[in-house]
């Protein structure tokens, strides 16, 4: 049982040497293990900033608040410590790291998160199985991390990492964006497999309701103007689908 709490979180985006802008303006949210929370909102509302700020992206600076995993403030941890504490971010734009092979990267990552190196044979079997589940061609293991991958291939690999690392909390930042329906299904199935144990909390950031047909949320939050503007059950997504974000955009302006 894990409790993931965001309390009064404020953060700036660092634009230049002396230029910064506040994006998160006091975010409060609690996610218990097994729960899936959809964070929906208009473009530019700060959804992605929330994801990156929690993960510790160097372009963002947290100015106030805390993010707790079972009471421990992960904002006091380094980026890699946060990941080892069980927080995983599936990025909207995964980074290409030339020359570092996917298999080497995944083994280093799994070793770090699990605290011991998996046996080579066992790991390669596990990796092959996980890749097959996501319809990823085995040759990708030898390629550079995300190097020359299409948008859809990158997203599949994010979910591959999610499945291998088995985090306590998964933040999925617009994992559905740019995917066709077939790819969306494959990726959603991966998320649902990871959820199946009932231990993982999910923060599913999306602009559209489409993915919510495949990954069922327990709660839906509207994110606008740097904070949670409204919370509800799955039915809130239907309202947003029908009415759009207009009323929240106006409220924020």
């Amino acid at each position: 049982m894990t409790k993931f709490e965001i309390r009064g979180l404020r953060a700036d985006v660092l634009i230049g040497e002396d230029e910064r802008q506040e994006i998160l303006k006091g975010v409060d949210l609690t996610i218990n293990s097994g729960e899936t929370h959809a964070i929906m909102g208009p473009n530019g509302s700060g959804k992605s900033t929330l994801a990156y700020a929690i993960a510790g992206h160097p372009r963002y600076e947290i100015t106030e608040g805390e993010v707790l995993v079972d009471g421990e403030n992960i904002l006091e941890m380094s980026v890699d410590e946060r990941a080892r504490a069980g927080v995983f971010l599936a990025m909207q734009y995964p980074v290409e790291v030339p020359g570092v092979s996917m298999s080497n990267f995944l083994r280093s990552s799994v070793t770090a998160v699990r605290g011991e190196a998996p046996k080579l044979r066992q790991f390669s079997k596990e990796l092959q199985g996980a890749m097959k589940d996501l319809s990823i061609d085995p040759t990708f293991a030898a390629r550079g991390v995300n190097e020359g991958f299409s948008g859809g291939e990158k997203k599949r690999h994010e979910i591959l990492q999610l499945e291998l690392l088995k985090p306590k909390v998964a933040i999925l930042d617009e994992t559905d964006s740019g995917l066709d329906v077939d790819a969306l299904k494959v990726v959603s199935e991966g998320v649902n497999r990871a959820k199946a144990g009932g231990e993982m909390g999910v923060m599913l950031i999306t602009h559209y309701t489409r993915i919510l047909n495949y990954v069922k949320p327990d709660f839906v939050h509207v994110f606008a103007n740097g904070r949670v503007a409204e919370s509800g059950g799955p039915e809130l997504a239907d309202t947003l689908e029908a009415e759009g974000y207009e009323r929240f955009v106006k409220a924020g302006a």
Binding site: G56, V79, A83, M91, V97
Partner: peptide, 10 residues
């Protein structure tokens, strides 16, 4: 950042 966000130490 990407590698570290997967738990790999700096």
């Amino acid at each position: 950042f990407y590698l570290r966000s997967r738990g790999i130490p700096e």
